[in-house]
Amino acid sequence: MWTAFLFAAIIAGTPLLFATLGELITEKSGNLNLGVEGMMLMGAIMGFSVGIWTGNPIMAMIGALLAGAAGALIFAVLTVSLRANQVVTGLALTIFGTGFASFMGKNFVGKVTPPAIKSFFHAFEIPFLSDIPYLGPILFKHDVFVYFGYLVILIASLYLYKTRRGLNLRAVGENAAAADASGINVTLYKYVHIIIGGALCGLGGAYLSLVTIPVWQEGVTSGRGWIAVALVIFASWNPTKAMLGAFLFGGLDILGFRLQSQGIQVSQYLIDMLPYVATVVVLILSTRNNKKEDRPPQDLGVPYYREER
């Protein structure tokens, strides 16, 4: 029973994993994009509609990626080039994305993921790894996208902490003026990473609408984008911790359903509250701890521009 639960938690947590990592990379560049929910929804509807039109899973994912990136581009232009307030711009992106998804999705409500895409996302076992006792059946009997998630986390960790570019990126987020003085193109770094972040959010949204909840419904993300923003704080800006957080919240997401199937009598609506209450608790606990390496990037939310002389 535990194996089945943890297995399902990973599937439920995978959209969160992508969104959380996307926001994490964005924040490393010093920009706080609160439009995650909007970008996820844009990715969700693009992925779903391209999936319905073409029946091609790769095309669907590329569509979702581009939609998320497009949303992030709007954010980048407004906050990096035009120095707009990051909080309000992020909110605007969420409002826009929600409207966009609901508008585009009007005719899809109740439609199901096409079979060609379903079969593409069929689970398969990774030889040897899936034989590891306990962990194997939980981690290595998934569909290709979950494995892609592991890979992306690995790449992101290596990129951030082991490469020159990753170091530059962190410098931009910590102290943009110093980074600029040392010859790093601050604007370019911010643009690139905000857009990559948005693309990841879009992918997370598409996995949600194509695999986790394979029927289109309005507001399919139901606040997961915001949970992702909180998870970045929970993960103290560390990709590996972000993955653990995402799976933990994936577990909370499906807990009510599991409890009911075990015959435990609890109101579904109260159980549905759990992820949100847990987010609040996590938020409070993680802001209380003040360890040095757990700090947010120092210039997070501060717009940067060279002073006029």
């Binding site: 909007g38 605007a92 992106l93 409002i95 826009f96 929600t98 409207g99 966009f100 609901s102 508008f103």
Partner: peptide, 8 residues
């Protein structure tokens, strides 16, 4: 929802 998009 077109109104939402216009708002954004």
């Amino acid at each position: 929802s077109v109104a939402d998009m216009i708002q954004g």
